[in-house]
Amino acid sequence: MPWTREEMAARAAGELQDGFYVNLGIGIPTLVANHVPDDIEVVLQSENGLLGIGPFPYDDEVDPDLINAGKQTVTTLPTSSFFSSADSFAMIRGGHIDLAILGAMEIAGNGDLANWTVPGKMIKGMGGAMDLVAGVKRVVVVMSHSDKEGNPKIVERCTLPLTGTGVVDAVISDYGRFILDRDRGELIVQELASDLDIAFVRARTGIPVRAA
């Protein structure tokens, strides 16, 4: 059975280490916050200007001046701080953020990542994604392994306009948890969703997949 969104988020939480400063993208990556292990402390950064994101507010705590980068209402923690957009991206581009977990439309064996437009059809904008992949120490992609038509999203070379080149370190999909070996252009299996075997994943991946 392929993993659900929550199962993928739980696996992605395995990337967190005690003391990490982490930026979580919109969608499944945001769910990673629900799975932080009890024995570690991480600080979540929101690129609109908040370090130390708290849980979603109770109904009577909602504050329109307090949102995350996905424009959802959030809360602060006792050690939170606010800052401007320029300061926020100085943190990101200056290499002060340990880990970014974000979604993708396409990634390549060489670590290239595309996630902001399909020319002529869809334009979402890159937001902070280009800054994050260029500036943080480690980039983990969480996404469905195949697109809606069943085509592989992990390919030899990206066809969509890029967000960054040679930036992806690891991938968590609905099929499993993988390290990307950018030098060899191979996906290395760390864990597969239950009942799936490596042949199933190989048939749905555009680059070689090898066992750990």
Binding site: A86, R93, G128, M130, D131
Partner: peptide, 25 residues
């Protein structure tokens, strides 16, 4: 890119006509 946008504005206010960044390479 959002960080480039913010830094271009910051640079404009600070009288810095250009800067270099990894973002977007």
């Amino acid at each position: 890119p959002q960080g480039t946008l913010a830094e271009r504005i910051r640079a404009g206010g600070a009288g810095i006509p250009a800067f270099y960044t990894r973002t977007g390479v």
